[in-house]
Design a protein around this nucleic acid. Structure first.
Lengths: 200, 200
DNA sequence: GTCTATAAAGCGATAGAC
DNA sequence: GTCTATCGCTTTATAGAC
């Protein structure tokens, strides 16, 4: 999930604007300060509205989390579909997986989900869809680059690179990046040696 | 960090037993329910002592977190040293990295660290030591298995496998394991084909 | 739809008896 | 070292005026 900048208003001119601001604020706060910073007061502060309005628009915090997660998830799926719309390539695949902001947000939502079962189901359903979509893209990329998928299956490429992106995001949270540059450099080099150039 | 079972008492027979129970309870609670469940009252409940004793033994929650983290970290480093004491092998390396409990605990401590700067420094210092120790072990294993390290550097092997272990732990938190078996199966197969057998 | 006011509960932390 | 009691604060959530 990205930083969730500007997005389309579902319907009408500026209906539910406050509601959107609250959802935006939730995603921003989660991305910037982590789930420990999530309170109605902080959300209201960031959104620029009274915190009681959070309760007016959402019956509970869990409802708010689910709606915020859905927005982030939809943005991610849309971005993946957009990137996958062009020609499949390992380089593009690597680029998708390197979205640090999305990794961070997912970690925070999973932490929140430990205390909100309904959110957990929502996340699991999304994770399954997203992984399947990424897998399809990885498979297409490997095929196009003529890399034998019985030697390195697409799923293995997917989980190893996704894990690496997640690890880097996690390390960075504590200001620790030992080995990141060396590993990314090796991957870039490997891509240069084993793939055919394609515009990114 | 493992499940922190029995550990040595620093000195004396059963001095500071309550203190130890509090630290144990903190690690258990963190591993089982995540950092959102950490309160002095819940800790006291799990430890079987009045929650006010947490304040008697620890000036602040941050102090408690740091002590709990140190215990977990020391256990991890000791376990790594123990495993590394034998002959280096990629299979052993993979085994070390597959400790799901440790991955989970680290995620929780990093989340806590976002609100406790002193804890963050503690974690960063440990992470650096642990990664260096793992890297040395990975390097020795690759050398012993006669795998060219200029083709696949030890650091790359380290971060990819650590990332995978972390990803699996993260997925499991939301009850989602798509691709885990396939990926672990491929790694096992790769190890069988590219390494010489050694007792684990 | 947004405001003020407040309820009900939980939190970390402290004081003082024993 | 452990207990009871409590302070002061923050939290989610609700009630009712406008």
């Amino acid at each position: 999930m990205g930083e969730s900048g500007q997005e389309v208003r579902p319907r009408g001119s500026r209906a539910h604007e406050t509601r959107d601001r609250i959802v935006d604020a939730t995603l921003q706060l989660l991305a910037r300060e982590g789930y420990g910073a999530i309170t109605t007061r902080r959300i209201g502060e960031v959104a620029g509205v009274k915190y009681q309005l959070v309760h007016y628009y959402f019956a509970s915090m869990e409802d708010l989390f689910i709606e915020a997660f859905r927005r982030g998830a939809e943005e991610n799926l849309a971005r993946l579909a957009e990137i996958a719309d062009g020609e499949a390539s390992l380089r593009r695949f690597w680029k998708i997986n390197s979205d640090a902001g999305a990794s961070k947000l997912m970690v925070e939502f999973v932490a929140l989900a430990q205390r909100h079962p309904a959110l957990r189901l929502e996340i699991a359903a999304y994770a399954r869809r997203f992984r399947a979509a990424q897998l399809a893209f990885a498979r297409a990329a490997l095929a196009r680059e003529s890399i034998a998928t019985d030697q390195v299956p697409p799923m293995v490429v997917l989980l190893l690179t996704t894990g690496l992106a997640q690890l880097e995001a996690h390390d960075r949270l504590i200001g620790f990046t030992d080995g990141h540059d060396e590993t990314r450099g090796w991957i870039e080099q490997w891509l240069a040696a084993n793939t055919t150039p394609v515009k990114e």
